[in-house]
Simulated scan of single mutants.
Amino acid sequence: MKNAGELLISKITSFISSLTPIAVEEVKTSLSQILKDFHVEKVEIDEKHPDLEEKISLFLTSKTLEGLSKGTVKGYKQELDLYANVIKKRVKDVTSSDIRLYLASLQNVKMSTMGKKLSVLKSFFGWLASEEIIDRDPTKKIKTPKTEKLLPKALKIEELEMLRESCKTVRQRAFIEVLYASGTRLSEIHQLNIDDINMQSMSTTVVGKGSKERSVFLSFKALYHLKKYLKQRKDDCEALFVTERKPYRRISKRAIQDEVKKVAKAAGLSHKVTPHVLRHTFATLTLNNGAELVAIQELLGHSSADTTLRYARITEDRKREQHKKYLVI
Rank of each mutant, 00 (worst) to 15 (best):
R214K: 03
K28T: 00
M162D: 10
D235F: 01
L19T: 06
A291L: 07
K77S: 13
T144L: 11
F217T: 12
R279M: 06
S166C: 08
K70V: 13
K265D: 14
L230C: 03
L150F: 00
W127A: 06
A84W: 04
V328L: 08
D37A: 05
L293E: 12
Q191L: 05
P152Q: 12
K63W: 00
S112E: 03
G183M: 01
T29E: 15
K246L: 02
T20F: 04
K63L: 13
E321Q: 15
K261V: 02
S303P: 10
Q172G: 10
K261Y: 08
L31C: 09
I314L: 15
I157N: 09
D196C: 00
A283R: 06
Q257R: 06
A255V: 09
E159A: 13
T61P: 03
A264F: 00
L150N: 00
G115L: 11
V91R: 01
D137C: 02
Y311T: 09
E298S: 02
I314A: 01
D81W: 14
L103M: 15
L287T: 01
K209G: 11
L192W: 12
L223F: 03
I251E: 07
D137W: 05
K55N: 15
K146V: 08
I87T: 11
R310I: 14
K227Q: 15
Q107R: 14
A295W: 07
D46R: 02
L179T: 10
K74D: 13
L155N: 00
S252E: 07
